[in-house]
Every structure is written in structure tokens, then in C-alpha cells.
Amino acid sequence: EYSEEELKTHISKGTLGKFTVPMLKEACRAYGLKSGLKKQELLEALTKHFQD
């Protein structure tokens, strides 16, 4: 599980793409985000969540 700060850091540095799909799905579930099946959809959901 990833902390909010850790995820925000990866988003701001542009390194969230280094996460694997299972890692991204886990992060989306942890924050109650609707997650797609594609890596890009997962990245967009997390990025949008933490930028709002």
C-alpha cells in the first residue's frame, strides 16, 4: 500500500508510470477510485484524484 504523499511525489515527478498495473490497481482501490483495465486509465485516475 502506498501513502498519499508517496503517490503525490510520484505524480509530481512524473514517475508514476514506473508502477506496474497491479500496483496501480491496488492504489486505485485504496483510494476508492474507479479503475480501468489499461495502465493509462489507472494513471489518469490517480493523477486526477491527487490534482483536484
Score class of each variant (00 low, 15 high):
3 S>P: 07
9 T>I: 13
21 V>H: 01
38 K>A: 10
6 E>S: 14
30 A>M: 13
2 Y>E: 05
33 L>A: 01
35 S>L: 10
45 A>H: 03
27 A>C: 03
51 Q>V: 04
4 E>W: 05
12 S>L: 12
26 E>F: 05
52 D>A: 06
28 C>K: 03
20 T>E: 10
9 T>Q: 12
37 L>W: 12
10 H>E: 05
14 G>F: 00
6 E>T: 14
30 A>P: 03
5 E>H: 09
44 E>P: 02
41 E>G: 06
16 L>N: 02
40 Q>Y: 08
26 E>V: 09
11 I>N: 06
16 L>S: 02
2 Y>D: 04
22 P>G: 10
52 D>K: 15
48 K>P: 01
1 E>W: 07
38 K>T: 11
22 P>I: 10
49 H>T: 02
45 A>D: 04
24 L>A: 01
47 T>S: 07
23 M>E: 15
29 R>H: 14
27 A>D: 00
4 E>Q: 07
5 E>S: 12
47 T>A: 11
48 K>T: 11
10 H>V: 08
25 K>I: 15
46 L>Y: 02
45 A>L: 09
37 L>A: 14
47 T>I: 12
36 G>R: 03
27 A>V: 09
15 T>H: 02
50 F>E: 03
19 F>S: 01
23 M>I: 04
40 Q>C: 10
12 S>H: 13
51 Q>H: 10
34 K>G: 08
48 K>Q: 15
4 E>A: 08
15 T>W: 03
51 Q>E: 07
6 E>I: 14
46 L>M: 01
15 T>R: 04
29 R>Q: 15
6 E>P: 02
40 Q>G: 11
44 E>A: 10
4 E>P: 09
15 T>Y: 03
52 D>L: 04
43 L>W: 05
18 K>N: 15
41 E>R: 03
17 G>I: 08
6 E>F: 13
26 E>D: 06
38 K>D: 13
40 Q>P: 07
5 E>D: 12
46 L>S: 06
45 A>N: 10
16 L>E: 07
19 F>Q: 02
43 L>I: 11
6 E>N: 15
8 K>D: 03
2 Y>R: 03
23 M>V: 10
3 S>N: 11
26 E>K: 08
24 L>R: 01
33 L>P: 00
6 E>L: 12
31 Y>W: 13
6 E>D: 13
9 T>F: 14
35 S>P: 13
21 V>N: 03
11 I>G: 01
12 S>E: 15
9 T>Y: 14
22 P>E: 15
41 E>H: 04
8 K>W: 11
49 H>C: 05
44 E>Q: 12
18 K>G: 13
